[in-house]
Nucleic acid binder design. Structure first.
Lengths: 95, 95
DNA sequence: CATATGATTGGCTATTTGGCAAAATAGTAA
DNA sequence: TTACTATTTTGCCAAATAGCCAATCATATG
């Protein structure tokens, strides 16, 4: 295993940063089982749709989710389920 | 498994946010094998000691590290090695 | 006591972020 | 085309963040 460079850590941090928000964790968890359209995510989250859309594009840029269009609807799906394990590991810290 | 609440996600996000910085990832990784004093971490990181100290107190508040004093030196150690697995999972995303 | 060393805290500035609302875009349907 | 729906983008602003420097704290030693 080679030593990690500053760039490695920066890349890692940018992905982690994408997850570092309650709403985005909720979104990622909701996408665990099935793909969901933005309007349904808006209802789940309870924020303005534009806000949810911003969170989604942030997650998309991080490579964590992708979208599939079906008529007017964009269905988002989780690309990297492994990040939820990470999130669960963090959730277990309270012990 | 019960449904996660907003508070659950907020707590989780605050820990993840603590990790979401290149310098802090470097620090956490450096502490994987052994405890390290602040002055050595400063050399590893290359930033001002006050900056490193702030990163450390942030990690401490998140419950990820703890310090042990030995004379003038404060030795930090990793409390939650599991978070590094998470970080490695994220690092593997580039495939 | 004074001084030196390691570490933290406070102050400051520049940058980033999250949220809403309005405007713009993409697709559907008449 | 027009109208309608779903989504994204832009603009704006308040709040949080990162970094350095200076000041302060904590401990050790003369």
């Amino acid at each position: 295993m080679k030593t990690k460079t500053k760039d490695d850590y920066a890349a890692q941090a940018s992905v982690i940063k994408a997850m570092a928000h309650p709403t985005r964790l909720l979104i990622l968890n909701s996408l665990k089982k099935r793909e969901i359209c933005v309007c349904e995510l808006r209802d789940l989250v309870g924020d303005d749709m534009s806000t949810v859309s911003k969170h989604l594009s942030l997650l998309k840029n991080a490579g964590l989710v992708a979208a599939r269009r079906e008529g007017n609807w964009l269905h988002y799906r989780l690309l990297r389920p492994c990040v939820l394990k990470f999130a669960d590991c963090v959730a277990g810290l309270k012990d």
